[in-house]
Structures are given as structure tokens and as C-alpha cells.
């Protein structure tokens, strides 16, 4: 479990990145911090592995204040995935994945064995092991990034807009893969994004943030879509523009055509009463 206790970050020049933030993140669940740029979501994420130290309040992992831990050791037991993967361009895929096990002193052979196993886990062809990151597609790079973060078998996975730089189709595929991985691995995931659909697709808990790290609303995806706490949340989700108020019209051949409030088609709902409708 990760707990933020009135954590805040003010930079020496007086900029307040995060005012005062409190949140409890249960183990083995995915929590999404959702907000536009400048809302402090990355700062919050980085407080967990001490890439940023809060100037007030504290962050606890399983009841222990992270400030008591040496940053380097802490980071080695927390997985971190970032946008544009952050892979080391001069190391082969297999060595990139083996980074943390090698740092913690695992012998090369064992670390590579572990890395190969992880490549299978994240759905990477083993033929890519000897490639360099620059020789991979964006989607493959992100998979390597995820594999690297999992290498030390951390309990916690921090993900900072990991799929932000890949094209929409690949992004959806990666999201699907992450959901599959999560049912299998059951990590405590803290995921940062500005993409509402991504948040709805991945989060067990979604925290909508306003500038300065203010929580606008925290809840399950259903709660947030069904009952936005205020105008800010509604606007952020596109509820006010009718993007998520759906209409279904019967189709001549059976089934329903679903469109949003503006009349733009979103998809087709089959005539099967056993299936759940979209939304």
C-alpha cells in the first residue's frame, strides 16, 4: 500500500507543484492519476521513488516513510516506466531489461535468463533480444520499458504516461496487454496519464487532478463517469460536451447504432440482451 500524507512540493523559486495531497493506494490495484499537464501528477509519482522529495508531508510504502530509505536502493525495488521508454540507446534490449538485476549484483547469465523470461511475459519476440532500442518500433520499445521495470520483480510499478508517444492502435493494444499482465502479476500500479480513455480502460481507481495537485474527484471509473463531483470533472471527461451521453438507435438489420450527443457514431450494439452495452 502506498499512502500520501498531506504531501506537498514547493520549489525554491516559490512555484507550488503540489499543494497538499493525501491519498491511499491499495495494494494489487491500479490507480490512475488523471490530469492535464502542469497538474503535478508526475511530481506526485516521483515522490514515491524519491526522484522528488516532498517539501511537506510524507509518502509511506506499507507504513514506512520513504524518506527513511536510501533513494538508490528504493528505486531498485520500484519499477518505473516512462514516456519514450527511457531505454539506454547504447545497450541491447536484453541488457536494458537486465539493468536492475545487474545493478543489484545478479550474475550476467542469470540476469539474461530473467530478461528472456520477461520478454516472453510482455509479449516480445526473443529474436529482438540482441537488437538496440533504436532498431525497435515505438510499441516494442515501450514493452521493453515495461519488461525492464518488472525485472527486479517489484511490488510497485510507477508508470508516467508510458503509452503517450505511440500511435492510438498500438496504445490500445498496449493497454490491453497491461490489463492482462496485471491480472497475472497483481502489482500495485500508479499510472499517470492525461488521456481519459486510457484512465477508464486501466484504472481500478481514478484520481482526477486539478492544477497544484488538488484532487477534484477520486473514485472508480463508474463513479466518476456516472456522478462527476463537479463541473471541472465533467468538463475534463467531456461530459458537458455530450461526448459520453450516448444514444442508441435501432438499425434496420437488427442491433443498435450508438452515437454521442452530437450524433457522431461511436459503434454498434448487437441485439444480444446477455451482453452489456458500451459505456
Amino acid at each position: 500500500m502506498i499512502e500520501f500524507e498531506r504531501a506537498g512540493k514547493t520549489y525554491p523559486d516559490g512555484t507550488v507543484a503540489v499543494g497538499e495531497f493525501s491519498l491511499r493506494i491499495p495494494s494489487h490495484t491500479t490507480t490512475v492519476l488523471l490530469g492535464s499537464s502542469g497538474c503535478g501528477k508526475t511530481t506526485l509519482l516521483r515522490m514515491v521513488n524519491r526522484m522528488v522529495d516532498p517539501t511537506s508531508g510524507r509518502v509511506l510504502i506499507d507504513g514506512e516513510d520513504v524518506a527513511q530509505e536510501a533513494p538508490v536502493a528504493l528505486r531498485r525495488r520500484i519499477g518505473y516506466v516512462m514516456q519514450n521508454s527511457g531505454l539506454l540507446p547504447h545497450r541491447r534490449v536484453i541488457d536494458n531489461i537486465a539493468t536492475v538485476p545487474r545493478l543489484t549484483g545478479m550474475p550476467r547469465g542469470a540476469a539474461h535468463e530473467r530478461a528472456r523470461e520477461l520478454m516472453r511475459t510482455v509479449g516480445l519476440d526473443s529474436g529482438l533480444a540482441r537488437r538496440y532500442p533504436g532498431q525497435l518500433s515505438g510499441g516494442q520499445q515501450q514493452r521493453v520499458g515495461v519488461a525492464r521495470a518488472l525485472a527486479s520483480d517489484p511490488n510497485i510499478l510507477l508508470m508516467d504516461e508510458p503509452f503517450g508517444a505511440v500511435d492510438p492502435l498500438v496504445r490500445m493494444e498496449l493497454q490491453r496487454e497491461l490489463r492482462r499482465l496485471q491480472t497475472q502479476l497483481r502489482k500495485t500500479i500508479l499510472f499517470v496519464t492525461h488521456d481519459i480513455d486510457e484512465a477508464l480502460a486501466l484504472g481500478d481507481q481514478i484520481v482526477v487532478l486539478q492544477p497544484g495537485g488538488q484532487i477534484a474527484q477520486a473514485g472508480t471509473p463508474e463513479e466518476i463517469v456516472a456522478a462527476p463531483a463537479n463541473d471541472f470533472v465533467a468538463r475534463f471527461l467531456g461530459l458537458d460536451a455530450g461526448r459520453r451521453s450516448l444514444r442508441a438507435r435501432p438499425q434496420p438489420g437488427g442491433g443498435w447504432l450508438v452515437s454521442d450527443a452530437g450524433g457522431r457514431p461511436l459503434g454498434v450494439l448487437p441485439d444480444d440482451p446477455a451482453r452489456e452495452g458500451p459505456g
Binding site: N49, M51, V72, A73, L74, R75, R76, R77, Y80, M82, N84, S85, G86, L87, L88, P89, T99, V100, L103, R148, L158
Partner: peptide
């Protein structure tokens, strides 16, 4: 060197020397 790469290396738990 790309700052994002350095940042990622730190995030993986490399110390300053590494």
C-alpha cells in the same frame, strides 16, 4: 546525453557514479 535517458537511469536506481 538526452536528459530523459539520464533521468530514466536514475529512476531505475543507478547512483550518481553509475
Amino acid at each position: 546525453v538526452d536528459r530523459a535517458t539520464v533521468d530514466a537511469a536514475r529512476a531505475q536506481g543507478m547512483n550518481a557514479w553509475q
